[in-house]
Write a protein that binds this DNA or RNA. Structure first.
Length: 372
RNA sequence: GUGGGUAUAGUUCAGUUGGUUAGAGCGCCAGUUUGUGGCACUGGAGGUCGGCGGUUCGAAUCCGCUUACCCACCCCA
């Protein structure tokens, strides 16, 4: 609550909080950053070397009404950089996100950035906003009336027709940045441009977590429904001190994995499916034990090998091997056991080669066929 | 929290104004020379039609309640 901010929706409405069997109040984490900050401080990482660069994959929980791209249990991939207050860290972070998105091949993603300044800038800005919105206080929507006192910046984000119309001509945070924050933002934009990253400045971005300051950004898709933010983040210099640790600047992002999957799906990009097995050892009645032992031997050599464990006919076994996309097969029956020989067959080319019923010989022939 | 929608086989979906034994494609299993798969053909398994209650001679179909899911608002990854 301290980290994310107790006036945010995440804390006020969306936390899964309950008592455990020892009557302790437990909350499922709604996001990753505050947990990482706590871990960094608790483990003393901040005293080791700086900057520290970290990543996480984690499931998160928010009590919201589910819809496309919004689940009550979802997964985030995130990175965090601790120990630099300079724009290089901000841009490095954004570039990594851009790289991930590009590497995955997701098209039509826009990077939107903004600066929400520091405490001083925001104090002035809040006053200006209050003054501005107070003039139309009566026409604001109910939630925004309360936001006027608690967190006027979020009125800018309100989608209600009335509020957004009023917000249209509201003062912009960018006009209230102090010298340092302005320099930081200008340098950030410059580094992005120098790195060849395309972005737009969206002065309306207000992140929903209170720990952010200065740079905030979102990677947005318009192909995955109304929950378009596929990745979002920013700088959070005050968070460590806020939760009771040393004062250490940081910047990071979180990526919504389910939303990434939606975007991949919308673009028709398939993720790699089932891993094909390398060798399938089929067996005829009486040869099951030999097949089993050879399969195990191949596995110990690091191969992905399978044999029949369901007692099916040869035909069914090979059908199964085909469905598993096995690269090679070996059929073992009475003849093979008597002669201590079998046929290693490439299931795609149909090429065959004689092998001894011996792990090393199978590996040798396998490699010969693979290298051809 | 607010609004709208959907629920039938493993899956994607048909199912007429209420009327016999609820169907199809794909998937799964088996067979088509009992030692080589993919293709084709044939056959098979698999459903208390989301749940409970009501109307009716009769309900997958109509009504009420309920649960789950989907979409949008809100909010956010």
């Amino acid at each position: 609550m301290r980290g994310v901010g107790d006036t945010t929706d995440i804390v006020q409405k969306e936390m899964y909080t309950f008592l455990d069997k020892g009557d302790r109040s437990v909350t499922l984490r709604p996001e990753g950053t505050a947990s990482v900050a706590r871990a960094v401080l608790e483990s003393g990482m901040a005293n080791e070397k700086l900057p520290q660069k970290l990543f996480y994959f984690s499931n998160c929980f928010r009590y919201e009404k589910p819809q496309a791209g919004r689940l009550r249990e979802f997964h985030q991939f995130g990175i965090e950089c601790y120990g630099s207050e300079r724009p290089e860290a901000d841009v490095e972070t954004m570039l990594i996100a851009a790289e991930v998105i590009e590497e995955l091949g997701i098209p039509d993603i826009t990077l939107e950035i903004n600066s929400i300044g520091c405490k001083d800038c925001r104090a002035k800005y809040r006053e200006a906003l209050k003054e501005y919105f107070a003039k139309s206080k009566e026409t604001l929507c109910e939630t925004c009336k309360t936001r006027l006192e608690s967190n006027p910046m979020r009125i800018l984000d309100c989608k209600s027709e009335v509020c957004s119309r009023i917000a249209k001509d509201a003062p912009m945070i960018l006009d209230f940045l102090c010298g340092d924050c302005n320099t930081h933002f200008e340098k950030t934009k410059k580094l992005l441009t120098l790195s060849g990253a395309s972005y737009i400045v969206n002065p309306k971005i207000v992140r929903g977590l209170d720990y952010y300051n200065r740079t905030v950004f979102e990677f947005i898709s318009n192909k995955i429904g109304s929950q378009g933010a596929v990745c979002a983040g920013g700088r959070y210099d005050g968070l460590c001190a806020q939760i009771g640790g040393v004062d250490i600047p940081a910047v990071g992002f979180a990526m919504g994995l389910e939303r990434i999957l939606l975007a991949l799906d919308a673009a028709g990009i398939n993720l790699p499916g089932e891993t094909p097995i390398e060798i399938f050892i089929a067996s005829l009645p009486g040869a099951e034990e030999t097949a089993f032992v050879i399969t195990n031997g191949l596995r110990k050599k690091g191969f992905s090998a399978e044999c029949e464990i369901a007692g099916r006919s040869l035909k069914a076994q090979l059908k199964y091997a085909d469905k598993r996309k096995a690269k090679y097969n070996i059929v073992i029956g009475e003849n093979e056991i008597n002669e201590n020989k079998a046929i290693l067959k490439d299931m795609q080319s149909g090429e065959k080669r004689e092998v001894l019923l011996d792990i090393d010989d199978i590996l040798l022939r396998y490699n010969e066929m693979e290298c051809k």
